[in-house]
Design a protein around this nucleic acid. Structure first.
Length: 283
DNA sequence: ACAGGCTCCTGCAGGC
DNA sequence: TGCCTGCAGGAGCCTG
């Protein structure tokens, strides 16, 4: 499932391919709309706009769009974004850059035809993903609800968890606190920091919190590096292959020996999520 | 206010 | 072999 490292990788890959391109036509699927903005309004807003840049914010992919009126491709730097297309991949969402004749995958909900002849497609079998269009003359630019875990400072990090009773794992998953951490990297960072997922977050020591902040950043950075190496496979054709080659320490390794101490990895449920940890390495 | 639980949705694994 | 059940989970919404 796409979390921060996957979203970052996809955003970079899409940015590289469609930056400076222009949306000629936008098509949206007819069945029950999983979108935040009605499909017709998205299509109307998107058509004619230049894609200035694509980047990640939290778990969201944000496409910065230029005004159709002065969409001069050579004058790209002069364009200030006047709209945004925001993509949340949910569990199973994919954003693909293809040629128009490429086979249309099942559950393709949006197709943007670009002036270069390419297509930007949104595919999402489980429909947990969300698409949103923002006209920046009418509303503010998109902001993630929480702090980015890649840049959060020690003081900010400590403040997020102070005085709270919920389990640290649940807190890590709360996007209003940190934006971008999902189930995999919550488990992996807690392992690396040596902290049990059920610990009350308000009771963690300053030292533990700092260890967790650094562990989280290391795990995410490492995953981005791996994701980056497989981005072309991912974007170009057969979907996710190569994308899950991450060297998980605990995630979905229930019953397998811990890579550090050989103790068997345990699986419990925290905040309704499958949670994996090493009973010896994590206290 | 805050925390926990339910819900959406489809594909896949496991059991009989 | 084939069908059925249950589980996976991000995040919005509801409830206590």
């Amino acid at each position: 499932m796409p979390e921060l490292p996957e979203v970052e990788t996809i955003a970079r890959g899409v940015n590289k391919r469609v930056r400076g391109d222009r949306i000629v036509e936008a098509w949206f699927g007819r069945h029950r709309e999983p979108f935040k903005t009605p499909a017709a309004r998205q299509a109307e807003g998107l058509e004619g706009r230049t894609i200035l840049a694509v980047h990640r914010t939290g778990k969201h992919i944000v496409c910065e769009l230029g005004d159709p009126a002065d969409g001069n491709l050579l004058d790209e730097s002069a364009n200030e974004p006047s709209a945004q297309w925001i993509v949340h991949l949910g569990m199973t969402g994919r954003l693909l850059v293809t040629t128009p004749d490429a086979l249309v995958a099942a559950h393709t909900h949006a197709r943007l035809s670009l002036i270069s002849g390419r297509e930007l497609r949104f595919v999402d079998p489980r429909r947990f993903g969300r698409l949103e269009y923002r006209d920046l003359s009418r509303s503010d630019g998109f902001r993630a609800p929480g702090i980015d875990p890649m840049t959060v400072t020690a003081a900010e990090f400590a403040r997020l968890f102070r005085g709270r009773k919920l389990a640290i794992k649940a807190a890590l998953l709360n996007q209003k606190l940190l934006s971008g951490v999902g189930n995999i990297y919550a488990d992996e960072s807690l392992f690396r920091a040596g902290i049990r997922p059920r610990r009350q977050c308000g009771r963690l020591t300053q030292a533990e919190l700092e260890k967790l902040r650094l562990a989280l950043r290391q795990v995410l950075k490492h995953a981005i590096r791996l994701g980056g190496s497989s981005v072309s496979d991912y974007m170009d054709a057969d979907g996710e292959r190569g994308f899950f080659q991450l060297e998980h320490s605990v995630y979905q390794r229930t019953g397998l020996p811990c890579r550090l101490c050989q103790t068997l990895i345990r699986r419990i449920e925290v905040a309704g999520r499958g949670t994996h940890y090493c009973p010896r390495c994590q206290r």
